[in-house]
Lab assay of single mutants.
Amino acid sequence: MIVFVRFNSSHGFPVEVDSDTSIFQLKEVVAKRQGVPADQLRVIFAGKELRNDWTVQNCDLDQQSIVHIVQRPWRKGQEMNATGGDDPRNAAGGCEREPQSLTRVDLSSSVLPGDSVGLAVILHTDSRKDSPPAGSPAGRSIYNSFYVYCKGPCQRVQPGKLRVQCSTCRQATLTLTQGPSCWDDVLIPNRMSGECQSPHCPGTSAEFFFKCGAHPTSDKETSVALHLIATNSRNITCITCTDVRSPVLVFQCNSRHVICLDCFHLYCVTRLNDRQFVHDPQLGYSLPCVAGCPNSLIKELHHFRILGEEQYNRYQQYGAEECVLQMGGVLCPRPGCGAGLLPEPDQRKVTCEGGNGLGCGFAFCRECKEAYHEGECSAVFEASGTTTQAYRVDERAAEQARWEAASKETIKKTTKPCPRCHVPVEKNGGCMHMKCPQPQCRLEWCWNCGCEWNRVCMGDHWFDV
C-alpha cells in the first residue's frame, strides 16, 4: 500500500509500505531520502505521535493516508518512550493509558441525555464484534464512529474520518494533550489543546475536521460531520418502519427517538411537499423529531443533505422563500418566477423588478396576487391545505425507538455506581478489583462488596467470576 509523507509540512511524497511495516522502518526510509538522522524524526498522525514499535496496521493507516513527519531533536526523557523501550505506560498493571487514536474515538455516547454525564468515556458498548469485510486488514473493525456528507465523488452519507490540525499553522502536526470525549470537544473551536510539532510553531489549540472515509482524499478535501447519525450498535428499532437498520439518525429530543435514513428521507420529502418545515429565527429551515417532541429541531442543517441534490435544492429554495415571508415580504405569483420581494408595508401595487435578471417585471396586487387592478379585489380565496398535519407515529413504536432507553438498560445490566462519587462504572470481565475512572475520584473498590478495596476482598473473592 501507499502512504503519503509530508516532511516538515512540505509537499508530500509517496512511500510504499506493508501492513506489518513498523513506524521506525518508515522513519528509516524517510531519513534516507531526506539525509537526516532517523532518531530525530517524529511521525504524527490523527493528533498522535506514533511509536517506533507500532506497525502501519496498528495505527489504522489506510491506503493513501497522509502522515506528517517532522525533524525535531529529542528532548530529555522522550527518546526512550518513542523507541518502544522502557515506557512506564506499558508496564503490566499500570494505570496510565495511551491517548486514544482519533481513528478509534467514539462519540456516540454523547447523544445520551444530559443526566448521563461521564458515560462518553466510561461506558463502552460490546456491539462492535462484526466481522471485518472481505479485503480489510485482519482485526480491523467495521464499526463506524462518525458519518459525514461527502460532496465529492460519493454525493451521499458516508463513514467519516476525524482529523485534527494546529489552529495556528493549519498543519496536521499537532499532538493532542488528551483525546475528545464528546461532540462539544470536536465542534467547539479551541476547546481542546495540544502541542504543535512543526518547527518554530508555538500553536497549542486544536482544530478538528472530518474527511470522507470511503475514498482517498487530499489535504484540502473536508466534509461536514453529521453528528446525529450513528451506527445502530444498540439495535434500536426505527420509529417509523420498526426495522432494525444501521446507520440511524438520533433526534435530540428527551427520548432520543431513532429513525433509519430511508424513513428520514421520506419524512423530509413529505414535509417538504406540504411546505411544513419549521422556520426558526436562529436555526433556519428545519424539522423536529418525527414524533413531534418539543425542543427537538435539527440544529445542523447539513443533515438535510440526505435528501439528495434535487430535493436539497428545493429545500434551500423553500427556506429562502419562507425567510422572505417571515420578513413581511411577498413572492411573485407569476408561474416560473417566484422571486422574493420586500415592498413597503402599505404598498398595494407590487412590481417584480426586472433588474439584474432576477425579476420578471410582472405587476400584481398584494392582496389577491392577481395582475394589478384598481378598486376592490374580486375574490380572495383562503389558501387550502395549509394546516399542519401531524406525522403519524405509532405510540408503541415510539416507545421502542428510544436510544436513551437502550442506554439505561445497558447501564443497569453492566454497571454499578462507584461507592464514593456514584458514577456508573462498567465491568466487562476481569477481577473484582475496580478503579473509578473519574479523575477527581480514582477510588479503588470491590465490585462484589461495593466497598473500598481491602485485604478481605483480596483474599476471599479477588478473582471470582
Score class of each variant (00 low, 15 high):
I2H: 14
F4I: 07
V5G: 02
H11L: 04
G12M: 05
F13T: 05
D20L: 06
T21I: 04
I23K: 00
I23N: 00
Q25I: 02
K27Y: 01
V30I: 07
K32M: 13
K32L: 15
D39Y: 04
I44R: 01
R51S: 08
N52D: 14
N52A: 05
N52F: 00
D53A: 05
T55A: 05
Q57W: 05
L61P: 01
I69E: 00
R75H: 12
N81I: 14
T83A: 12
A91G: 12
G93H: 13
G94A: 13
Q100R: 11
S101H: 09
S101D: 14
T103L: 07
V105W: 10
S108C: 10
S116F: 05
V117S: 15
L119V: 11
V121T: 15
V121E: 15
L123K: 15
T125M: 07
S127T: 12
K129D: 10
D130K: 11
S131Q: 11
S136P: 11
G139T: 13
T168L: 12
T173V: 06
L176F: 07
L176W: 02
T177K: 15
Q178L: 06
G179Y: 06
P180V: 03
D185L: 00
M192T: 05
E195Y: 10
Q197T: 13
P199S: 08
C201M: 01
P202A: 12
P202F: 08
S205Q: 12
S205P: 02
A206N: 00
E207N: 07
F209Y: 13
F210L: 09
T217K: 08
S218I: 09
S218R: 08
K220N: 11
E221R: 07
T222M: 08
L228A: 05
R234H: 08
N235L: 06
N235K: 13
V248S: 02
Q252K: 08
C253M: 01
N254R: 09
C263L: 00
Y267L: 04
R271G: 06
R271P: 00
Q276R: 08
V278R: 07
D280G: 06
Q282K: 13
L283G: 11
G284D: 03
Y285S: 03
Y285H: 05
C289P: 01
V290P: 15
L297K: 03
E300M: 05
E309Y: 10
Q311F: 07
Y318M: 04
Y318K: 02
V324R: 04
Q326M: 10
G328C: 04
L331W: 04
L331Q: 06
R334A: 07
G340M: 07
L342F: 10
C352P: 02
G355T: 12
C360P: 03
R366C: 07
R366W: 05
K369P: 02
K369F: 13
G385V: 08
T388S: 14
Q389T: 15
R392C: 10
R392L: 13
E404Y: 08
S407P: 13
K412N: 13
T415M: 11
P417W: 13
C418I: 00
E426T: 14
E426W: 06
C441A: 00
C446E: 00
C449H: 03
N454V: 02
R455V: 15
R455W: 04
V456C: 15
H461E: 00
F463V: 01
